[in-house]
Deep mutational scan, measured.
Amino acid sequence: TYTWNTKEEAKQAFKELLKEKRVPSNASWEQAMKMIINDPRYSALAKLSEKKQAFNAYKVQTE
């Protein structure tokens, strides 16, 4: 089980997950979700809006 003390740690864990699963920077949210949804870190960020925000930040960083 994973635990995160801060929102920032949770966001980092979520981005690490995207990186580890090699989600391409041109992937849509739907494509990315299919690649990461079974990992416990997918739940790091509770709100869908937070997940999408972190995903978009990840995409910008990896382009």
Results as ranks from 00 to 15, higher is better:
residue 44 A to S: 08
residue 21 K to R: 11
residue 4 W to V: 05
residue 31 Q to I: 11
residue 29 W to S: 00
residue 42 Y to L: 02
residue 25 S to F: 14
residue 53 Q to N: 09
residue 17 L to A: 09
residue 48 L to D: 09
residue 61 Q to G: 11
residue 39 D to A: 01
residue 59 K to Q: 09
residue 40 P to R: 08
residue 55 F to L: 09
residue 48 L to E: 12
residue 34 K to F: 10
residue 30 E to F: 13
residue 48 L to V: 10
residue 38 N to R: 09
residue 34 K to P: 11
residue 37 I to N: 13
residue 16 E to V: 05
residue 25 S to D: 06
residue 55 F to V: 03
residue 51 K to T: 02
residue 35 M to G: 03
residue 48 L to T: 10
residue 26 N to Q: 09
residue 41 R to L: 02
residue 26 N to H: 09
residue 18 L to Y: 00
residue 40 P to V: 11
residue 37 I to W: 12
residue 25 S to L: 14
residue 12 Q to I: 09
residue 15 K to C: 15
residue 33 M to C: 12
residue 20 E to W: 04
residue 43 S to T: 10
residue 52 K to G: 02
residue 35 M to P: 00
residue 12 Q to F: 09
residue 55 F to Q: 02
residue 4 W to K: 07
residue 44 A to G: 04
residue 40 P to C: 09
residue 18 L to W: 01
residue 23 V to M: 02
residue 31 Q to G: 07
residue 43 S to Q: 14
residue 36 I to H: 00
residue 61 Q to I: 09
residue 55 F to P: 01
residue 14 F to I: 01
residue 20 E to I: 05
residue 1 T to R: 13
residue 55 F to H: 03
residue 24 P to T: 04
residue 34 K to M: 13
residue 34 K to H: 10
residue 31 Q to D: 09
residue 9 E to Y: 04
residue 27 A to K: 04
residue 47 K to E: 14
residue 10 A to P: 03
residue 29 W to L: 02
residue 9 E to P: 02
residue 10 A to E: 06
residue 63 E to L: 11
residue 55 F to Y: 06
residue 35 M to F: 06
residue 51 K to F: 04
residue 36 I to W: 01
residue 52 K to C: 08
residue 53 Q to V: 08
residue 54 A to H: 04
residue 33 M to Q: 13
residue 4 W to M: 04
residue 49 S to V: 08
residue 38 N to T: 11
residue 50 E to V: 03
residue 50 E to K: 04
residue 19 K to F: 15
residue 48 L to N: 07
residue 9 E to I: 04
residue 58 Y to A: 02
residue 18 L to I: 04
residue 22 R to L: 14
residue 56 N to K: 13
residue 36 I to K: 00
residue 12 Q to Y: 07
residue 14 F to K: 00
residue 52 K to E: 08
residue 49 S to W: 11
residue 6 T to S: 07
residue 47 K to V: 10
residue 43 S to G: 12
residue 11 K to S: 13
residue 1 T to D: 15
residue 41 R to W: 01
residue 48 L to K: 11
residue 51 K to Q: 04
residue 9 E to K: 03
residue 60 V to A: 13
residue 31 Q to Y: 10
residue 38 N to M: 11
residue 39 D to K: 00
residue 25 S to G: 12
